[in-house]
Design a binder for these strands. Sequence first.
DNA 1: TATGAATGAGGCTTCATTCAT
DNA 2: CATGAATGAAGCCTCATTCAT
Lengths: 192, 192, 192, 192
Amino acid sequence: MKDDESKESKREIILHAAEKMFAGRRFDEVKLDEIAAAAGVGKGTLYLYFKNKEDLFAQMAVEGLDEMTERIRAIALMKLPFQERLFLFGREFSAFLARRQGVMRVMNQVQPAPVSKIFRRHLGRTIQAVHALLQKGMDEGALRRDFSVSELRCVLVGPILLKVRRETHEGEVIDLNALLNFFWAGAAEKKK
Amino acid sequence: MKDDESKESKREIILHAAEKMFAGRRFDEVKLDEIAAAAGVGKGTLYLYFKNKEDLFAQMAVEGLDEMTERIRAIALMKLPFQERLFLFGREFSAFLARRQGVMRVMNQVQPAPVSKIFRRHLGRTIQAVHALLQKGMDEGALRRDFSVSELRCVLVGPILLKVRRETHEGEVIDLNALLNFFWAGAAEKKK
Amino acid sequence: MKDDESKESKREIILHAAEKMFAGRRFDEVKLDEIAAAAGVGKGTLYLYFKNKEDLFAQMAVEGLDEMTERIRAIALMKLPFQERLFLFGREFSAFLARRQGVMRVMNQVQPAPVSKIFRRHLGRTIQAVHALLQKGMDEGALRRDFSVSELRCVLVGPILLKVRRETHEGEVIDLNALLNFFWAGAAEKKK
Amino acid sequence: MKDDESKESKREIILHAAEKMFAGRRFDEVKLDEIAAAAGVGKGTLYLYFKNKEDLFAQMAVEGLDEMTERIRAIALMKLPFQERLFLFGREFSAFLARRQGVMRVMNQVQPAPVSKIFRRHLGRTIQAVHALLQKGMDEGALRRDFSVSELRCVLVGPILLKVRRETHEGEVIDLNALLNFFWAGAAEKKK
DNA sequence: TATGAATGAGGCTTCATTCAT
DNA sequence: CATGAATGAAGCCTCATTCAT
């Protein structure tokens, strides 16, 4: 806690500044000058922490994604009824996306080759974690087995992604619980 | 019908070439040289039909969207049981997105200000058409009234978008009918 | 007199249109599109009458210059007192420059190599004609011999050029007769 | 004083390089590449000092003009007989024009709108200074009052401009003193 | 470690010129 | 003769990247 930057490392300061700049704008629209200015550092400093613009973009995108992945895995292992774990996931995932628009951005932008390599691997892990969560629900007898896990994942995550996008871009507010309830009503194994 | 381009206007040839080039790559990764070459025209010719690169991008994005909007409206008015209209919409919408990756691209990429103006208006109309379709289903007593139309739209369209993206980018195949059935099971008004 | 263009050949129509466009603007600021439009002909037509833009520019510049040269020569040979011939020259030269701004333009602009070849030769002839006029005045005993003809030419033509430029660009009006009287007072051989 | 550029700022180095390149050639004939090469800097560096090509052109034109204006004003105030001040002005003005061909260039070329704004204002000041000099001569009783100051200015400056142009473009040498003597003989107030 | 002045590769864009009609 | 759609060479300008300090 040497200066006013509290605990945040310079690397993270830059990433957060970049995330703000990239939100709502294309890769080519954001200049490194802007990012440096927003982060309050010199332009050259960016190159002390990142190989180049693509790398900065990729790391920003990945930033937090791993954290989310861990969180999903933790939720899956919790000692709670499956429905509660599912709703917890829904709330945290939605909040994560809303908070980290930069990640959304990259999820939505097409990945250029080199960025893609890094980002896809990390995103793949996140998807895998969701997959595992749903698989667990199935194994526990909480979810219907006549849908594939991929289908359930699609039906669960798709609406959440769309909701966040609508809220971010258009300001339309959509009730998360309604979406989760809809999913649960259709996906839960009927108790006999 | 001089050559193999049959009836297609030069403008459309360019747009289709552009769509192919923009698929899977960022705006700044695609060079006008490539587009011109792909369309089989000179670089300068692009400027006879489009103001600049942004404009070409925007028009490509809008291209076909209006057509889809009209199609949705037509489907809504068909003399078919609502479920059939719904499934027809699902199939056509999914096919449309898969076919016109360029539009998907722009739906996903963040729109720079000037492009956005144009694109949002057109996209808004498409969304409105889906909205109207669902509203009609509700009015006809085919859809449950305890979800808002916005929520239903989210739950219907979200999974389709995700499915197409997964298939396009990752090659994962997801069964469209499963998604539609899931939606219908949860959204259909229960006959007493 | 076939149509409404009276007698003027298409070539002259183009040259006059070009002169209007080049007045007050740099060579690179004037587009052939504009000239064609102003002349009411197609762009391709320009190339039926001129080799290229430089050539059109050069011919426009020369246009009328030869005519002026002939006029000066004629004035020199007139059976009038020298002073009257001198003042006549002054009035016609001034009027010519004011009327044909395009020529002024090129007189003032730096001549690019190929244009220069043509233009300098013609301008040289005009200057030569003025030179001959003054030489004649000297030979006739009307002009002082203690100034060189080049000096007298400078003192006569310089003020006229400046006058026209000021009037064209700044709207300042300067009395031509004052300039001519000044010259005559200083250059006329004193009668003993 | 690291290298041979002594004290000259990079901005001035560029302006002087530009002046050499623009001398005798049209605006569109000079490429920024050349100017950069001539100045010994990278192409991009030009844009650190000038907004664009037009701006560089304009600043080059104005460069030195202000200095000349100040010099004229200083000459006007000198404690010398008016004739000496006048001849001093003539010599310095002539030398200035010969030295700074770039300025001549722009004085002669027609100014495109944005350049013109800047240049005309500065040129106007120079003209005003000459005007003031002559006005002073009149007030001091050194110059005849039966010519307007504008007329005298025309008769004094016109020949100098033409002389410099002839010398620069055609290599014809004209005696400055002859021109100044001619002016003085015609413009000086006769002592009774 | 931090900077930002300098760079130059490369893209978008313009526009003189051509040529099929 | 006349046209104007098509072209592509070429230039201005941007901006990611470097490096001397």
